[in-house]
């Protein structure tokens, strides 16, 4: 994998500077929907200009270049340790080049060594599969949207939410109202029903790897995804919480088994500056194609 570091550096650069096509289409659609002359429309126009400017200048779309989350699908016997070392080097280099902000802080001392490499940064998820293909997906998730994520334990008396899909719907819509514009809406929700507290949040983030225009294989969940977006967009929260028509660009729901005693609904909010990209690599680590 002689070219792996260069490829990962390019993956980081492009993820930080270029919004994926599926998200861009949804943003352009949202811009069209907003009433002319409103502050919501102004915000969407600035967002649209920002997307173009970041791409042209090859600079971060948002200064919070976020948690660095790699999702690697690889064959059995793939050398994960070497990949992890190379990914850390690529992150350091990307930080030097300004593709990433110096964004990783020692939680106890408050010290920021400026490399973005430390405990938990970057985060690497490896999944083995029975194919020779190596795919690397990268998500850069900013703190503003991460902070408005929420986890509900059903039943929830305040929300009158029981342990069923209607209860999940109440929890998810509550999270939308609680988030208001604080997560840099219009946003996208990744949702997990079930799991434990850790796997629930983790799986909710993985839902954000799905293209916005895909279909949920489970028709009931597809229906709930559509309903969440339509209902959220009636609430008038709008871009940045300024009031307006588009509060959500999408919602993606996955399900994990749970314990009889637990029923978690975990919600990860992704801002409009939805930075995710992915590549398929050949055996030398060259980029064969882009995934989004």
């Amino acid at each position: 994998m002689t070219n792996l570091q260069d490829s990962l550096l390019e993956l980081i650069r492009r993820t930080s500077a270029e919004i994926p096509d599926d998200v861009h289409r949804a943003i352009l659609n949202a811009l069209e929907q907003e009433k002319k002359g409103t502050i919501a429309e102004s915000a969407m126009k600035i967002i649209d200009q920002n997307i173009a400017l970041a791409k042209n200048k090859s600079q971060p779309i948002c200064q919070d270049t976020g948690s660095i989350l790699f999702y690697v699908d690889c064959p059995a016997n793939f050398d994960q340790l070497t990949f992890a070392d190379t990914a850390r080097e690529a992150v350091k280099l990307a930080t030097k080049k300004g593709y990433l902000r110096q964004n990783s802080v020692d939680s106890l001392t408050g010290r920021n060594d400026g490399t973005n490499v430390g405990p938990g940064s970057p985060t690497l998820h490896f999944h083995q599969h029975r194919s020779p293909e190596i795919t690397v997906r990268l998500m850069l998730k900013g703190g503003g949207c991460e902070n408005v994520g929420a986890q509900y334990s059903l039943p929830d008396e305040r929300l009158k939410a029981n342990r069923d899909l209607d209860g999940c719907r109440k929890a998810i819509l509550d999270a939308v109202v609680q988030a208001q514009g604080k997560g840099c809406g219009p946003g996208v929700l990744g949702i997990c029903i079930g799991g434990d507290r850790a796997t629930g949040y983790e799986f909710s983030k993985q839902q954000l790897l799905r293209p916005l225009d895909d279909r949920n294989p489970d028709p009931k969940l597809q229906e709930l995804e559509d309903d969440i977006v339509q209902t959220a967009n009636k609430l008038g929260i709008g871009p940045m919480g300024f009031g307006g028509k588009t509060t959500l660009l999408g919602a993606k729901i996955g399900v994990l088994n749970r314990l009889p005693a637990s029923y978690f609904v975990s919600i990860s909010y992704m801002c409009w500056a939805f930075r995710r990209q992915g590549v398929v690599l050949d055996s030398n680590g060259n980029i064969q194609r882009w995934l989004y």
Binding site: I47, G142, G144
Partner: peptide, 10 residues
């Protein structure tokens, strides 16, 4: 506008 790092940096 949150996230509009380029427009604002300009």
């Amino acid at each position: 506008v949150g996230g509009a790092a380029q427009v604002l940096a300009a």
